[in-house]
């Protein structure tokens, strides 16, 4: 209770304030400070010898390793190989996912076949299928690209047909009431209406693609970030290992930032 003195008489507020809280916001300087402190503490722990440099290399040694790898051109080779794989795999999976998700969203036959099929196949860890793909397709790029494509396909197909299902019924009725032909309704009403859900699925699919890229490269590749990480680990080059992880994280952040830009420009109407 809040006591207030007004004109000499003591009055009590009728109700005490209870409207605060439940509105968390991100405060930039606190976020920045946290990371600065974290990295600072890490560097200090290494410099003071609290942790062994072999088990956990210091931030400065990781930066050194990054610089060395960048200058020697080794990093570029691995990154290019990885980006080519993830780019090809993601594009194939995304296109097929949008096409099949759209068909499932629009047609009963595709829905009858597609939904149970996806329910059965989606939970399989796609990396488990890589040996099979190597058997079928040989030990080139194809099995890795197919693994990534498959991992991307399911979430995007699901996100697409869920998006189609969520398009407001009245918008479709509106199109029909004006006698718009089917393909006009599909492309002018359903497709843009499903876009937010598709883009949300795209976001999920990119992190799946990144995981599968690294895993697939660990199984069978001599170039690529996964292969590089595996070699560094086997050779106990923990500074190289950590440098590789930083690069993978940076790629993830770049993709995420790119997607934010795409969402902002394509969904500005929301």
């Amino acid at each position: 209770m809040v006591d207030m003195s007004v004109g000499g008489t003591r009055r009590r507020a009728l109700v005490s304030f209870r409207g605060g809280g439940f509105a968390p916001v991100s405060i930039t300087w606190i976020s920045v400070l946290f990371f600065v402190l974290l990295i600072g503490f890490w560097q200090m722990a290494s410099s003071l010898g609290w942790v062994s440099g072999l088990f956990l290399p210091s931030p400065l040694r990781i930066v050194d390793a990054l610089q060395r790898l960048a200058l020697s051109g080794e990093l570029t080779q691995h990154v290019t190989a990885s980006l080519a794989r993830i780019g090809a795999g993601w594009a194939v999976g995304a296109v097929l996912g949008v096409v099949f998700g759209g068909l499932i969203g629009l047609f009963s036959i595709w829905r009858s076949v597609g939904v149970p099929f996806i329910a059965a196949m989606f939970p399989i860890p796609k990396i488990a299928l890589l040996p099979l793909f190597i058997l079928w397709l040989g030990i080139g790029e194809a099995p890795k690209i197919v693994t990534i494509a498959l991992g991307v396909f399911y979430p995007i197909a699901i996100g697409t047909y869920a998006g189609v299902d969520n398009v407001a019924r009245t918008l479709i009725r509106m199109g029909q009431s004006f006698n718009m032909p089917f393909h006009h309704i599909a492309f002018k009403i359903v497709a843009p209406g499903a876009l937010p859900s598709v883009l949300a699925a795209v976001r999920i699919s990119t992190s799946i693609a990144l995981i599968l890229m690294v895993s697939a490269e660990m199984i069978g590749a001599d170039k690529g970030l996964g292969a590089f990480l595996l070699t560094a680990g086997n050779l106990m080059q923990t500074d190289n290992l950590m440098a590789g992880i930083v690069v993978v994280a940076a790629i993830g952040l770049c993709i995420s930032g790119l997607l934010t830009l795409v969402e902002r420009s394509m969904l500005s109407w929301r």
């Binding site: 009245t170 009725r173 009431s177 004006f178 002018k188 009403i189």
Partner: peptide
Amino acid sequence: LNPYTFIFQDFALLPWR
């Protein structure tokens, strides 16, 4: 162009247009 034409309760506008 469309003999019977609706005006909808919830307007049914395409928000992206």
